[in-house]
Design a binder for these strands. Sequence first.
DNA 1: CGTTGTGAACTCATTCACAGCT
DNA 2: AGCTGTGAATGAGTTCACAACG
Lengths: 221, 221
Amino acid sequence: MRYSDSMTESNPPSELRLSRAAAQRLSLYLRSLDSFARTGTTLSSEVLAKTVGVSAAQVRRDLAVLGHLGLRGIGYEAAGLAAAIRKTLGIDRPWKAVLVGVGNLARALLRYRGFSEHGFEIVGLFDSDATKIGQIVGGLAIEPLSRLKLAVQESRAELGILTVPSDVAQAVANQMVASGLRGVMNFASVLLVLPHGVQVVTVDLAIQLEQLAFAVHLGED
Amino acid sequence: MRYSDSMTESNPPSELRLSRAAAQRLSLYLRSLDSFARTGTTLSSEVLAKTVGVSAAQVRRDLAVLGHLGLRGIGYEAAGLAAAIRKTLGIDRPWKAVLVGVGNLARALLRYRGFSEHGFEIVGLFDSDATKIGQIVGGLAIEPLSRLKLAVQESRAELGILTVPSDVAQAVANQMVASGLRGVMNFASVLLVLPHGVQVVTVDLAIQLEQLAFAVHLGED
DNA sequence: CGTTGTGAACTCATTCACAGCT
DNA sequence: AGCTGTGAATGAGTTCACAACG
C-alpha cells in the first residue's frame, strides 16, 4: 500500500503533470527512438537531445516524469523508453478515427501512411454531399452524416478528423460530439467551441506558412 | 536573436520581441479580424479574446507590441489593426513558394485555397521522379530538381514546401537551401538541420494526432 | 569514469489590477 | 463611463550545476 507520494519504486509514475509542449517533445523522442532501435540498444540524453533539437537537460527533465528508467553512467534503453513514452501518451493501444468531409485534403490524408503506422485507424468516411455517398475512397465507402452516430457507436471510434469548409466546421463538429467522439482534429480555420471533456487539435496550414514567412522576415535563427 | 541590438527607438514599435507563440496568436487575431471586418468597425480586446480563446489581457499585451493603436474607451479599429498585424508579420506583401515532392499530399495542398487567399503563391513544382516530369498539376508543369536553383532565382521565390518522403527530406532540403530559399515548410517527420539564417516550420500530422489521443487519454480540458 | 535525476536559479510568459487617456 | 496600456505579481518552463549512482 502506498501513501501519497513516498517515492516508491513501483512501475506507475506517481504524479503525472505534462505540459502540452512536453507531451509534444515526447512524441518527437519517440520518432527518434524508433529509428534508433536498429542502431543501438541504449542512448544518452545528449544523443537524444541532438536528434530532436533540444537540450540534454530538457530531455532528462521530460523523461523523469515517466519514472526512473535511465541507467546512470549508461543512458536509456531505447526499446523500454519507447514503450514507456507510448504508455504515457496513451498510444500503447490502437485508436480508431472517423473522417468527416471527404474533399481533396481528406483524400491526401487517406493516402498518408503516417496515421496507420502510428496506430491510428480510419474506420469511416462521412460527407453531407449526396453525390459522394457510396464512393469508395481508400477502401471505405462514403456514408451520409445521418449515419455518423450509429457508425461511431458500432465501431467504437473515439477520434474524428474534420476536413470540411470553415463555415460549416462548428456545426459538423457539434454533430461529431453528439455522436460520441471524444476528440477532434480540426483542419478548418476557426476556433471550435466544444463541450467540456471533448478535446480539439487544430491544424491550420495557412497560419503555419505565415509563421514561416514571419521568421524569414525577421531573419532570426 | 543575439547581440547587435542597436535598434533605434523611433516612432514605430521600438522594441519588437515576439515569441513564437505570440506571433501565432497574431495570426489568429488576423483571422478573426478578417471575418469581423464586415460586422463592425471597432472591437474590444475582450471580444477579440473570446473569438480566439485567450484572455483579454493577453490580447492587449500582444497588440501592445504593434504600437499604440487601441482607442481607450472604444477598442481597436478592425481594418487598421489587421493592417498593422500584417505588417509586423511581414505578410503585407505577397510571398512566392516552390513545392518539392509532388505526391498526394502536395496535390491536396495545391487545391487548398488557403495559401493563395493569404498571399502565398506557388510558382513551381519539382520532383526527382522522371516519370512525373512534365505533368501539369494545378496549372504548373512538374520540373526536375536539377532546374530548382535556376527557377528559384528567376522567380525570386523565398519559401519552399517540402513534401518528400522522410528518408530523403534532409538531402532535398539541402538542395532547396543551396538554391537560395530562405524558409522551408517541412511535412516530413524528421528534424531538418539547416544553416544559420534558414527558417524551418515542421508540420507532422501523426504527432498532432498523437497529441489529440493523449489529451483524450487524460480527459483533461 | 559517465550519465542520470533534481533542487535551485533563472528566464520567459501570463495574469492582475489599476492609472491614464478618450 | 469604458477600455487600453503597463508596472508588478505570479506562474510556467528551462537551464545550471552537482550529488548520487551504476
